[in-house]
Design a protein around this nucleic acid. Sequence first.
DNA 1: CTATCTGTTCTGAC
DNA 2: TGTCAGAACAGATA
Length: 287
Amino acid sequence: MPELPEVETLKLGLQKYIVGKKILSVLVKDRKVFSGDEKNAVGATIIAIRRFAKGIVIDLDNNYSFAIHIKLTGQLIFRDEKIKDLLVLRPSPQKVPNAFTRVTLVLSGKSFLYFNEVRGFAWMKLLKTKDVLMLPFFKSLGPEAIATSSSKQALTLPLFESIVHKSNVAIKPFLMDQAKIGGVGNIYANDACFAAKIDPRRKAKILSKAEIQTLFDSLLQVLKKALHYRGSSELNFVDVLGKLGEYQKHMLVYGRKGKPCMRDDGGVIEKIKLTGRGTYFCDKCQK
DNA sequence: CTATCTGTTCTGAC
DNA sequence: TGTCAGAACAGATA
């Protein structure tokens, strides 16, 4: 699933539904995706939700935090008496908890937060709040494409220019390198290159100042649009209530192999592999 | 059926 | 240090 817009969507939902709730118990069904001692969360109250690039942090009032990365197929779904199974999950099963529910937080007010995961790559760790940023994932993050108040550093145009200018990799994989820029994944890296009319295969360091500026604007525009649509649900991303995002209906090039270019310039969307990842572009307008 | 695809990140090799 | 291929895994699709 997730890139920055999806994780931000999730964060906003968690802020709305679980902040202020007390953790009554933590049921760990699969130790593979969970680390830490769940007893340290029991009895604590959730006081804040933070996002760092594609990572989520749930802060408790006892100096512990859950750090979560949902990787490709993780879900965090909230349910209470009012919100039952009125919302649609995809893929099925339509209900939570289900076979993919690996951790359940039992919360006050007869409510639950389910951590679902299909492929087993996602993780949830319970650790001291002060240690969260020392985890390898958080520690290595570069400036955030779209910063929040908790971000370590925001991406600015001058910063973007200086990092792009130093890099010897192709611009699309460059955008996806979390150590360079936090939060951008494959869908939005593809769409940002298209929006900026830049060939994803070009080396970052050879882009002109004007191209870098256009790409910076395009990247932010694409991410903001995706956030507006509450993310993409190509596979199984859902928000905290189990609702699908809508950006997949508005993708510029991602997943559009063989289809005509949106610019109606006679170009057709090609798909190639670039550092192992599916890369989509129109070779008519992306130079 | 087999083969290949998948939105991420981490490790190990060069 | 920077870059890249492959691995971790399960399921959907061709």
